[in-house]
Structures are given as structure tokens and as C-alpha cells.
Design a protein around this nucleic acid. Sequence first.
DNA 1: AGCTTATCATACCGATAGGTACAAAAACTT
DNA 2: AAGTTTTTGTACCTATCGGTATGATAAGCT
Lengths: 215, 215
Amino acid sequence: MKDDQIPHRNRGRPLAFDPDQALDAAMRVFWLKGYEGASVSDLTGAMGINKPSLYARFNDKRGLFLAALERYNATVGAPTLQKVVDGKTVHETIIGYLSATNAFLTSPDTPPGCLVGSVVTDMAGRDDEIRAHIAALFASTEAFLTQRFKELGDAPMDEATLAELIVSFGQSLAARARVGATLDDLSARTDRFLSVVLRAEVSCCRFCGRQLKLP
Amino acid sequence: MKDDQIPHRNRGRPLAFDPDQALDAAMRVFWLKGYEGASVSDLTGAMGINKPSLYARFNDKRGLFLAALERYNATVGAPTLQKVVDGKTVHETIIGYLSATNAFLTSPDTPPGCLVGSVVTDMAGRDDEIRAHIAALFASTEAFLTQRFKELGDAPMDEATLAELIVSFGQSLAARARVGATLDDLSARTDRFLSVVLRAEVSCCRFCGRQLKLP
DNA sequence: AGCTTATCATACCGATAGGTACAAAAACTT
DNA sequence: AAGTTTTTGTACCTATCGGTATGATAAGCT
């Protein structure tokens, strides 16, 4: 009775839809409508499949949601974090990370804001599994930034504190985008944030008055 | 046919429940479960009333939600903003505002986080009326802080920028609280944020190295 | 071809969703 | 006491919810 659960490859009727494409569609529905607000009919409609196909592949609505969340991290979260890997200085890293964040938060191709920052964070208040998952995601994002800042070595303050401030600010950007802020709004807010936190291109402090360009 | 709509006072069978108490209960249900996730049965159960009473007073589920949101602003938002009125210095004002925020975000008597920052912000992505309402609320909160900082006159930077940073940071605190952060977590994050933004009790900048206690 | 495997589309399930009809009940007015 | 006004509790409405049984269909295997 071995490998009883594992479906044999290349047997049976082939899938009539592309799983990643269907997940993209489901992701957007959840992103816009939230978990409880997205009905299974909404989802199958957007995915272009029938309900039995959905349940055969994702088990239930929750399973689909978790799969869509993975897809979100792979297609939205990962490319944003890649900017952190690509940055050659702390300043460049932060600019890259927040710019990429602002871009996807206001992309015309997707619902406003961040799926994780609005829908999933909201759900965390009533769903322990989601809460643990998302708390770990936040923590690991901060740890990732901290680690990278240490490698780069030119952070203007304690690296963990800087990472915390950046991620926190990113969460506020997500909230603003969700309530309708434009890319210009977010960019302007980001400039002001960085001018204070990195003290770049502004007076260093009100005592020494020195002009800086960090780093 | 005048005043046909206005119910005569002190006529008819009296209300068997306290409207504010019922709204408090409804507010908590929405706070925990979100709008779509809160069923009318959940709501009437928590409020201790029957459905016809709910519909007679609040018109429909959405009307109840809007009333609960007003109640939230009156019982949670307003007391927090009162700290801004009470502050005698910018530093004290900020500490008071963020401390009060952290307290209600993690209160054991209410669901985690901020109703506005999680549930309503999420809804804003799919509901234009809510979006306009909440965007105006954010803007007016920043304007209120800006105005107060100007009155106090001892802000260490442009008052609007400072207000923006404080409100933004508050939003990130709300997200953290929603995913399970404790009051200690939030307080520690707040200390680190203030140590950078207000440069208080830390090195002023990496060039002049001066110790400050602001203000 | 015939068998096996897996996905397809249709049609359906009980439960619950938001919302309401209706008559009894509780106050006031006269 | 009788009538008026408003809220109450029960019982019910239709639509949709998440989820599934069933049989046709499309592929590989032998």
C-alpha cells in the first residue's frame, strides 16, 4: 500500500488550467476582498476553474488562501527583498527596498496596498496559525535586513534598530496605500522619513547644522 | 404630514437595552472578526438584542458598523488624542500619545490591535466610502498633531514632518500588536524609534557625538 | 482497443447569510 | 379604560455560503 497518496505523473486527464496563473488570480481576489469577503464563487470565477478542481488541488478555501499567500511571497515579497541583496550600501539598500515597496503598493495591476499588511494582518487577530506565521515573517524580514546591514558595514546606527525602523515604516506605507495614497504621496513620505532617519541631504542636527549625504 | 419621520419621545415601549453598551459590544465583534467575518447573529448575540431591534435602530449591518466606528473614535481614539492636548512639551506629547496607543493596542479587555488600523484599513481597499472616511481621519490626525506641535513651539524639526513620522509609526505599532506583540515589545520599539527620531538620550549624530535630552 | 488514472462540468447538499412580517407587550396620552 | 406609539420575541424569507456526489471526458499504459 505504498505511495498510495502520490498521484502518478502523466496519467489521467491533464489539468485544464495553469496552477500558478490560477493562484495569481486567487491571490488578487483575496488581496482585494479579504478572506471572509472572498467567496468560493468569486475565487473560481477569477481563476477560471470549477469548484471541484479547486477543492481537488487546494483541499479547501483555507488551503487555497495559504497557497495564494505563498504565491504572494514568491512573486511580490521576494522581488522586493531582492533589492536588499542587490544594494551596495546601506543607503542604496534602503532606497531600493522602500522604492520597490511603494511601487507594488500602488501598482495599477494589483489591488491597493499589501496583502500581508492589510488582509493577513487583520486575520491574525482571529486566527492563531496565521498570526504565528505572519509574526515570524515580520521577524525574519527584520533579521534579514539587519544581517545585510551588518555585511555592508556602513549603517549610521545600530543595524537592528535601523532594520526595525525601515520595516515599520514600510508597514505604515502599506496602510497609506490601502486607503488610497498615490505613488507620489508615498515617495514624498519616504523622502521625509529618510531625511530624518538617515539625516541625508538635510541638516545633520539642530546643533551642528552640518550638511550630509549619506552614505 | 410634517414630522412624520421623527419618533415622539417618551412614547411607546421603552428600549430594553443601553444603546452605547450595545454599540460597545458590536464594536468588539467587528474589531475581532472584521466586517465580513462578523455575522449579524454574532453581533446580536454579543449585543444581547434581537435582529429586529438591530435593524430598527441601525438600518442594516453597514449602518451598525459605521455607528460602531463612531463609538470607537469616541471611546478609543479621542482619549488617545487627548494626550496630545495635555502634553506640555513636544516630547511629553509624543510620549503620551504613543504610550496611550500602545496601551489600548494591547489591552486585555479588547481585541488585539486597532480597529481602524486593521479592519477598517483593510476594508478601505474595497469600499470607497470607507476609504474616503479613513483617509480623512488619518490626514486630520496628522494635522492635529502638527497644529499642536506648532503651538508648543519646541519641535526638533519641521512640525508636519514630525507629526507624519509619529502617526506613521503608530500605524506600524498597530500592525505589530495585531500579530501578537506584547506591550513590552511595543514599548521597546517605541523607545528605539524615539531615540533615533528625537535623538534623545543618545548620541546626537555620529559626527558631533553630543548627548541630548530632548526637549 | 481496452483499462486505469485523474480531471472535468453539472447539479446538488445542508447550513447559514442578511434581512423582515407579524403579533404580543410595554410604555404614554387622553 | 381605551387608543396610540414603539419595541419586543418568534418565526420565517430568499440567496448564497463552503463543500461534494456523480458521471462524462481525456490522457497514458499494456
